[in-house]
Amino acid sequence: MATCTSIPLAIPKDGSLTKAMIKDIVGTFLTSEWPNVDPETLVVTKKTGYANTNCVVERPNPKGDTHSEPLKVFLKIHGALDGEIEVLKHLVPNKHEEAQLCYDYGQSGLGPKVYGFFQTQDGTFGRVDEFLDARSLEPEDVEDANIRAEVARGHAVFHSMETQLKKNPIQSYYDAVTRELARYHKMNKLKRLANEGGVSMDHLVDYDFVSRLRRVTDRLESIEGKKGWCIHDVQFMNVLVKNSPNQGESKIVLIDFEFVFQNYRAFDIGGHFLQKMFKWFDEENKIANCRPYTEEEKRHFCEEYSKQWNEKTGDSDTGEQVFMESELGFMLAITFEIRNMLCFMDQDGDKDPLNLLGLNKLFEEFVKQYKKLGLGS
């Protein structure tokens, strides 16, 4: 059970943490050796995070080379809700629910263990997790059939898992996202910012995503698209590849559950196919320098997914059924990304040309897929 522990310290408003503070946080949960560590001997490596502070914390190997507690842990400090999450606040898990979900996922052996969940005096939430010897999934990795199959099975298990989260109607999400897309439709501010960034986005801003998104969900309903616990933020950085997995253990780990709620499973599957084309944290180009998923690879993914889904649920879905759903889910995932990026532009005045080019690429993929599936007729 992920019980929230109060920790008697306050994190500065700039988010900076001293090594002494980090030692005290970790030592609250790992109580044998970590409390005796000299904080100045800690090696703290900050990891890139969009809204959160993520750190890998390593202590020296004790004398005699024996230790009962891990030498490395992963520390996550949750940031405040931003505009992207705020509009979905009624759907996404609160920090305690997210911690419980991560705890359950870790206890199942599928993900990192949660050592502790805490709140500081200033109201900040955070977690201390097991550090995994792993790297982020790269777009080229899924061209390996074995890795691709493991990612497919990992998503099928997550989508079908039992959780303590409330099952909100999926229409609640589509009501929220269509309201937002309608608000940005034909917004002159967005056109101006794009032009100032040297990239025209007029066609995207003037495009009626709302009516087209409704056609996509109507089609999913007509083919009885299945629903499950979707992660939504399925960029490749949120899939880890273990460097040295144990015998019989999955090489793939899914992480980052801030956006988990009920949706069409097609959202995450199509989103995974979409994300092979992008590297959002690259400083030189947001569009990945590799080929997209081929249809053959997509069908292989969907076949592996359906087998795992059926094993977990007792259903008898075919790979073809999952593939048909994923073709529609591809567009659901695009509208999620576009909505988030337009929100960022509107709130923060973003006109980074790399982001703008990424947005136009998303738009191009939506239009192409919508036409391919004959949804405009």
Rank of each mutant, 00 (worst) to 15 (best):
L375F: 02
R135C: 06
V92N: 01
I25M: 07
S222Y: 05
M161N: 05
F131C: 10
L17I: 10
V253W: 05
E33I: 03
D175L: 14
E180N: 14
F209Y: 14
N310E: 10
H78T: 05
K191C: 05
W34S: 02
I170W: 13
P8G: 10
F236Q: 11
E33P: 03
F158H: 05
H67N: 09
F344C: 09
L254V: 07
L71V: 12
S222H: 05
H203W: 05
V205M: 01
K371Y: 01
V142G: 04
M277S: 14
Y184L: 03
F273C: 10
G198N: 08
W280S: 13
H185G: 02
K312M: 14
C4V: 14
G358F: 11
T41E: 12
C343L: 12
Q275M: 15
T53L: 04
H300C: 11
K371F: 04
M331L: 09
K286I: 08
I255N: 00
K361R: 15
F158M: 13
F257V: 05
A2L: 10
F257W: 02
E320Q: 13
F281W: 13
I85N: 09
Y50P: 00
G123L: 13
V205Q: 01
N36C: 06
D144Q: 12
A182T: 11
S32Y: 09
H78W: 10
Y293R: 09
Q347P: 07
K251I: 05
S377Y: 13
L375D: 00
A134S: 11
Q347N: 15
P292M: 07
H90A: 15
V43H: 07
N243D: 15
G271T: 04
T18A: 10
Y207I: 03
K298P: 06
D315L: 04
G374T: 11
I7D: 05
D104N: 12
S108R: 10
S306N: 10
I255W: 00
N360F: 09
K372T: 13
V142E: 09
K72R: 15
I269K: 12
W229V: 12
S211G: 08
G374N: 07
G49H: 01
D350S: 15
F29C: 02
G79R: 05
D268N: 09
H96D: 14
V205Y: 00
H159T: 06
I25W: 01
F131T: 06
W229N: 12
T120E: 06
F257D: 01
S68M: 06
A145H: 04
F273Y: 14
S108H: 10
C102L: 13
G225A: 15
L213F: 12
E97K: 12
G83N: 13
K113D: 08
